[in-house]
Simulated assay, not measured.
Amino acid sequence: MNLKKYFLFLVMAAVMVVATACGGGDEEATTESDEQTGTEEVEGTDTETEEATEGTELEGSVVVDGSGTVYPLMSVVAEEYMYTEQENVSVEVSRAGTSAGFGKFLIENGTDFNNASRQIKDEEQAEADTVGFEVKEMKVALDGLTFVINKENDWATELTEEELIRIFKHDGGVTKWSDLRPEFPDEEIKPMGPNENHGTYEFFYENILEKEDLVDGVNLQQEYSTLVNLVSEDVNGIAFFGFGYYVNNQDKLAAVNVDFGDGPVEPTLETIGEDAEYAPFTRPVFTYLNVDMAKEKPQVLDFALYVANNVNDFAGEAGFAPLPDAELQEYVAFLEGLK
């Protein structure tokens, strides 16, 4: 009996030793795990915070209006952003025209962005100052002002810069094609273009015509699609607008190759550029950001960053020449500073 109790005692003691050893190992493992977790948390705090900021699921709306020229580019950027980045953010892109868009942007609780095919004017900047918010100008691409003709027009496929100006200028002395060159048809020219709501009109009027009046009878339209249809239906029609609208309507229109003095230059993504062959008719296009809105609405800032980081990927397909990456990264640095 005593021997049996002694044997049981030894067995129980052995079990307790094993249990203690196992428990100590678990405690040590837990402690080591906790220490590792703690170390990872300390070392990874900044990274995790940054990832949380960048990867946060956002919601709400972003309102963009303005230039019809910039519309195709910004709409495709917005669509990709909503599809791949923030499916709960609604980016609404409209095309009232540059000037009309500034009218919606430069007011209290106005639009978040205004696309523009010209730079903001001093009086428009003064309106922002009066309302009391900061405006940030961001170039988004380079556009080539393109003159388009009917596909059956086989005589005006190559014109000089001076001839194009004469067609649209009030005192250019041109009403018929034969006024440009004797071998051209003795038919009345039908000049057309976007109306005063558009930055393209203002760029043409201020930079190409140097603020000289347009020719009497010029047909100015609000919608670019209307201009496409009018020229495609009239062999004597000629119009001007952004390169992107020509690219998307090459089945209906032909582009005029422009001679700036060294031979005809076709507007293409390769020739459009501030230092390229088509430079005299090249212009930057912009979007303007309400910085105060970007500070108040995370989705507005997030979309602005997406534009700055990715717009070059979409420029070509929308009919624009891309910007230097260094220029876009300056915008990224500014926007990062708003976080």
Rank of each mutant, 00 (worst) to 15 (best):
F281C: 04
I149V: 14
K169S: 14
Q221I: 05
E32H: 07
V256W: 09
V15G: 08
N2V: 13
D129M: 00
E32W: 07
C22Y: 12
E43A: 09
G44M: 06
Y6M: 10
V70C: 09
E48N: 08
R95F: 04
S90W: 05
Y278L: 08
V77R: 02
D302A: 12
E336W: 04
F133D: 03
T49P: 01
D129P: 03
D259H: 05
N2I: 15
A96K: 01
V285R: 00
Y331K: 05
S67T: 08
Q222W: 01
G23H: 09
N88H: 11
L209Q: 05
D262V: 05
E183C: 01
N207R: 13
V247Q: 15
K104E: 14
Q86G: 06
E274A: 08
T111I: 06
D302P: 02
E80K: 12
S33Y: 14
P298D: 15
E336K: 14
T47K: 14
Y306M: 10
A333S: 15
G55E: 15
I208R: 07
P298V: 10
V63K: 14
L253K: 02
N88S: 15
E233V: 04
N249I: 00
L230N: 13
E28Q: 08
K121I: 07
K211R: 12
L220Q: 08
N197H: 02
K169D: 15
Q125G: 07
T49V: 10
T287R: 00
A333H: 04
A52S: 15
V300M: 06
G172D: 02
A321N: 09
D259P: 03
Y288T: 04
R166W: 13
K104L: 11
D154A: 10
I167R: 02
N207H: 12
E32C: 00
G199F: 00
N309C: 01
P194T: 06
A254M: 11
E183Y: 11
G319S: 04
G66Y: 05
A29N: 09
N310W: 06
L335K: 08
T130I: 13
V247C: 10
P280M: 13
I238P: 00
A19V: 14
N229L: 08
